[in-house]
Amino acid sequence: MRILVTGTAGFIGAALAQRLLARGDVVYGVDNHNTYYDPALKEARLARFIDHPNYTHQRADLADAEALNHAFAACAPQRVVNLAAQAGVRYSLQNPQAYVASNLVGFVNMLEACRHGSVEHLVYASSSSVYGANRKLPFAVEDAVDHPVSLYAASKKANELMAHTYSHLYGLPTTGLRFFTVYGPWGRPDMSPMLFADRISRGEPIDVFNFGHHSRDFTYIDDIVEGVIRTLDHPAEPDPAYDAERPNPGSSNAPYRVYNLGNDQPVQLLRFIELLEQNFGRRVEKRLLPMQPGDVPDTWADVTALRRDVGYAPNTSIEDGVTRFVAWYREYHRLD
């Protein structure tokens, strides 16, 4: 297939592009290479596949409708995976405008391009952050998500609403994937796994918020990519069991779906840190601090719907995942 993927210099986008190329798809990548974190890491990710004969790369911002339309004209994609976005919960407290430009303006540009390009299926990144103030665990797609606690979460919930509108009005099949704490090789430097690895590798104290009582549904990058591909290969369809009097937030009478994409195995943050310490062969001081604004205590993905519809089953244990992550970290940073 011809597949347009945005965010191919990013953590998930780069891993997805490699998997798609390996199975024979033609991939057109779009990324704006912004400086939210070190662009050198983005270039290093891209270097692994940018010269592949079935890959084309365009530096462009989703908020630039003309540039995005050029990508669609050049690629004529059959299917699209939209992973490009302004990420990060805490950064949304500092620079809310960046989230409006990328996650709202950029996303409506994507929807318009897909609509006019007669795209067979749009898969897009949502986030576990949409569950916000919810406390019922595990989080299920059938749960209401009307109480976000950060602008980042609100922008991702808005994406789901915008996608449903286009599915309803124009019959555009859309599937939103709520990612749960993705970690692994080539990960984002602003996320806790990389921040912890940086400090433990240097023997420095680490800040542990919520006094160490957090738990997260850490999901290894290979399991995330597997879930994205399985979803991409199953375009959303109207739910024949949809009841407008008792609506299910995860489906619709339009070709629309929302799924959790997680490991379904929450891990205490202190356990995750312990595994990092074991793999680095070093223990460090933990500074226990209060909860940060915009954060949530626990996440846990109910992946029943995704398992039922596309056969998704995460299979990387936290022990194996952390071992592989630290092995990559040591190699990338030349610590051995």
Rank of each mutant, 00 (worst) to 15 (best):
M1I: 09
M1F: 11
R2K: 14
G7V: 13
G10N: 05
G10W: 01
G13Q: 07
G13K: 08
A14D: 01
A15R: 10
L16V: 03
A17R: 04
V26S: 15
G29T: 10
N34G: 08
T35Q: 15
Y37R: 13
D38S: 15
D38H: 13
A47I: 13
F49T: 13
F49N: 08
N54E: 14
T56Q: 14
D64C: 13
D64I: 12
D64Y: 13
A65N: 02
A65R: 14
E66D: 14
A73M: 07
A74Y: 10
A74F: 11
P77D: 07
R79D: 11
A84H: 09
Q86E: 09
A87R: 12
Y91T: 09
Y91F: 12
P96K: 08
S102R: 08
S102G: 00
L104N: 08
L104R: 08
L104A: 13
F107D: 04
N109W: 13
N109M: 12
E112F: 12
G117M: 03
S118G: 12
E120L: 07
Y124G: 03
Y124D: 00
V130F: 04
N134L: 05
R135H: 08
L137F: 02
D143M: 15
H147Y: 09
L151D: 06
A154D: 11
K156N: 03
K157H: 00
N159G: 15
L161F: 14
M162S: 14
H164G: 00
T165D: 06
L169C: 15
Y170P: 04
P173R: 03
G176W: 12
L177E: 00
R178G: 04
F180W: 07
T181H: 15
V182E: 03
G184C: 08
G187N: 11
P189I: 09
P189V: 12
D190S: 15
S192I: 14
D198I: 03
I200H: 01
S201H: 15
P205G: 03
I206K: 13
D207Y: 09
H214V: 11
S215K: 12
R216Y: 08
R216H: 08
F218D: 00
Y220C: 10
I224K: 02
G227S: 02
V228K: 04
T231V: 12
L232I: 04
H234K: 02
A236R: 09
P238M: 07
A241Y: 04
A241D: 14
E245F: 11
S251P: 01
S251R: 06
N253W: 06
A254D: 00
R257F: 05
G262W: 04
N263H: 01
D264E: 06
P266D: 00
L270F: 07
R271C: 05
F272T: 02
I273K: 11
I273W: 10
E277N: 14
N279D: 04
E285H: 09
M291W: 06
Q292A: 07
P293H: 04
G294H: 04
V296Q: 02
V296T: 12
W300M: 05
W300D: 01
A301S: 07
D302A: 03
V303R: 07
L306E: 03
L306I: 06
R308F: 00
D309M: 01
V310W: 02
P314S: 01
N315Y: 03
S317V: 09
I318K: 14
E319D: 09
D320I: 07
G321W: 02
R324S: 05
A327H: 15
R334D: 11
L335R: 15
